[in-house]
């Protein structure tokens, strides 16, 4: 099962044509980490302030499992 990747807010500008309803799908392979996924999506790691895997916070070096839901968020500070 592919990874389900959701980009939040301003990160969507880094994925032209991003569909907020569907998100992105990415192929999983054993040993893939969040950082590896970011590299494949061509998203600079410093753009991403929050990483959520299946709704729980994760780090860039955490490995991903087949079918994981990955949420990537920028800093949000407006009021």
């Amino acid at each position: 099962m592919p990874l389900q990747v959701r980009l939040s807010a301003s990160l969507r500008r880094l994925a032209p044509g991003y569909d907020a309803l569907r998100g992105l799908e990415a192929d999983w392979r054993p040993g893939l980490t969040v950082a590896g996924l970011l590299a494949r999506l061509d998203i600079a790691p410093q753009e991403v302030k929050i990483i959520m895997v299946n709704g729980r916070s994760a780090g860039p070096d955490d490995p991903l499992a087949d079918g994981d839901r990955v949420g990537l968020f920028p800093a949000v500070g407006g009021g």
């Binding site: 929050i50 920028p74 800093a75 949000v76 500070g77 407006g78």
Partner: peptide, 25 residues
Amino acid sequence: GLYGREPAPKAEAAESFLGVPTPTP
């Protein structure tokens, strides 16, 4: 825990790109 130990500069935060439109706040 949410954003890291140091606050991100305003220029990097989502609102710098997307503004703050009427319904969200």
